[in-house]
Design a protein around this nucleic acid. Structure first.
Lengths: 184, 184
DNA sequence: GAAACTTTACCGGCTAGACGGTTTTCTACC
DNA sequence: GGTAGAAAACCGTCTAGCCGGTAAAGTTTC
């Protein structure tokens, strides 16, 4: 790692290109130019376009995980915290997140292999929810609803106004809390 | 309408190509060949590739609507029927539905315009749920959870075993029923 | 001086769409 | 009802542009 940030510079550039034109139009030439690197230099760091996309998705997942880790740290050992932080993470689409994620979602839908980091993320999350203090099915519903909302906003299927959105958010958090009492 | 089914034949062909190679690799040549039509003939019916994709998505949405309409007809005027039929429709991914929908989802994520028929579908559904007998927020959660499950299975993020899936399905239906009593 | 890194120049393949021509179907008129 | 002419449907080819990836020749760093 003599030039520590070469890969990161390229990933930043790729993200900004994706944000502007979508993953389909993300060409190696465009990314290289944006990164201030030649095409050969780009391919030295990421031997194939697929490997570049994979790294982009992995980085995005990493951001979500960092988000959640931070939220959990703030909130001690309460088992519903995991769920609450998941809801929060799914619902906060800040700073061009949508523009970045939608094309990556598209790329992932076309090439399942790209989504491996996401799969791993879910695997861990579900393992965490296998907690005797939590009603698993209830927790799943909350998780799935968060994902559904994430999807619909990502695809701009319907634009919720702030009030509706806040109500839904609150409702999902309330349901998160309920999962912990309900053990049969 | 001398040749009534020319467009449908092409759409069938396009679907089968998509199912095999994904929307990205769905080339006009491939579709034309599969449909037993020349490229010129294809472009006569669908002037651009985009218009073809749009028609494919519209047809898929139409199928879902037909599904729901049928379910609702069977079940009289109970207001939760709408929600129950939505859950059922979202959860039944039969006969290559996944292989067809995932690439279309990808195409839609890249080109928001393609999703217009989907937007319209949701608009109608949400209008239907604005029923004084139904707790709207509860209904939304059920709807979103169905969509979330649909997404995760579509992307093969995690494969539920039949038992888990059936439990979740039952739970979502139960929640559908609850939306009708809970009015504050 | 060798290994890591970067550049420039280039290639081969693919694809959307245009275009000019051909066949089939419809319409109208005698 | 037959024929002519218009319109619709369809065909096959061509092409310009793009894009991922290679190859070989520098350049920097240790």
């Amino acid at each position: 790692m003599s030039r520590p940030s070469s890969k990161d510079t390229i990933l930043d550039a790729a993200e900004s290109v994706v944000r502007e034109s979508g993953a389909v139009h993300m060409t190696l030439d465009a990314v290289a130019e944006r990164a201030g690197v030649s095409k050969g230099g780009l391919l030295y760091n990421f031997p194939t376009k697929e490997s570049l996309l994979e790294a982009m998705i992995a980085r995005q997942v990493g951001r979500c995980e960092a988000n959640r880790a931070e939220a959990e740290e703030k909130a001690g050992g309460d088992p519903t915290v995991k769920l609450r932080s998941y809801v929060d993470t799914a619902l906060q689409l800040e700073g061009g997140m949508r523009e970045t994620c939608a094309p990556l979602l598209a790329a992932g839908a076309n090439n399942p292999k790209l989504l491996d980091p996401v799969r791993e993320h879910y695997r861990k999350l579900i393992a965490e929810l296998q907690d005797p203090a939590i009603n698993f099915d209830d927790a799943m519903v909350v998780m799935l609803a968060s994902d559904g909302l994430w999807l619909l906003e990502m695809l701009q299927i319907f634009p919720l106004d702030d009030a509706q959105r806040a109500r839904l958010h609150a409702k999902l958090l309330a349901l998160s809390d309920q999962t912990v009492q309900k053990r049969k």
